[in-house]
C-alpha cells in the first residue's frame, strides 16, 4: 500500500487525484492526505494552538474533501487552493466556536486591539509571507491579518478598529490584490 502511495505521489497532479477521490478512490485519497495533511494541520495548529482540536479539524477537513471532491470545479481554481481553503474555513469555524465557548478566559475576549492584532500577527511564521505582508500598507496588513490569521469577520474588524465596514472591505480587497503581485502562489512542493 505504501509503495503504491509513493508512486501516486509522483504520478498525476492534485486535480487528477481529486477527480479520483470524487470517484471514491481510496488510494488517491491517501496520496492527497500524504500531500496535504501537513499544510492542513499547520493551518489548524496555527489558528487553534491546541493539538487535540487541530487533529479534529484536520480530520474534518479530509472528510470534507472525501465527501465534497465532487463539488470541486477545476475551471474555478486549483485543487491546492481549494484544499487549503477548506482547511482554513474549518479552522476559522473552530476558532469562532472556541471563542463563543465559556471556557475561553474573559481576558481573551476583552483584550485590547493591539493584543488581538499582535496575537494574529504572531501566527505568521514564514519569512517570505511576513515580508510580503510588510509590502502592504499598515491598514491593509492589519485588516488581512485579523481576517485570515485572526479568524475575525469584516464586521468584527470594523468594530474593533472603529472604521466603517466599507473601508475594511476595501482594505481587504486592495491588500489581497497587492499580496498577489508580491507573493505568487507557490508550487505544491513548497506548500510546507
Amino acid at each position: 500500500m505504501r509503495g503504491s502511495t509513493v508512486s501516486l505521489l509522483n504520478a498525476g497532479d492534485d486535480e487528477a487525484l481529486l477527480a479520483r477521490v470524487a470517484q471514491a478512490d481510496p488510494e488517491a485519497f491517501e496520496a492527497l492526505y500524504a500531500r496535504y495533511s501537513g499544510p492542513a494541520y499547520s493551518i489548524a495548529m496555527g489558528m487553534l494552538r491546541d493539538t487535540i482540536r487541530a487533529q479534529e479539524v484536520t480530520q474534518d477537513v479530509f472528510l470534507a474533501i472525501w465527501r465534497g471532491a465532487r463539488a470541486f470545479d477545476p475551471a474555478r481554481g486549483s485543487a491546492r487552493t481549494w484544499i487549503l481553503s477548506v482547511a482554513h474555513h474549518k479552522s476559522v469555524d473552530a476558532v469562532r466556536r472556541a471563542r463563543r465557548s465559556p471556557t475561553v478566559p474573559l481576558s481573551d475576549t476583552i483584550a485590547g486591539d493591539v493584543d488581538v492584532i499582535e496575537e494574529a500577527q504572531a501566527r505568521v511564521d514564514a519569512g517570505h509571507v511576513r515580508r510580503a505582508l510588510e509590502a502592504l500598507s499598515a491598514e491593509q496588513r492589519v485588516a488581512l491579518v485579523l481576517a485570515y490569521y485572526g479568524g475575525y469577520t469584516q464586521q468584527e474588524i470594523a468594530q474593533r478598529l472603529g472604521v466603517p465596514l466599507g473601508t475594511i472591505k476595501t482594505r481587504i480587497r486592495d491588500g489581497l490584490l497587492r499580496l498577489r503581485s508580491v507573493l505568487p502562489a507557490p508550487a505544491p512542493e513548497t506548500a510546507r
Partner: peptide, 28 residues
Amino acid sequence: GVFEDAAASLAIGFAPEEPPAALRRRVL
C-alpha cells in the same frame, strides 16, 4: 478564484507542524 489564490498564499504563512502519525490511520 483570484482572491482565493491570494488567500491560499497566506496559508503557507503558518509555522509548519507535522500531524501525529496516528491521525492518518483515524482519517483513513
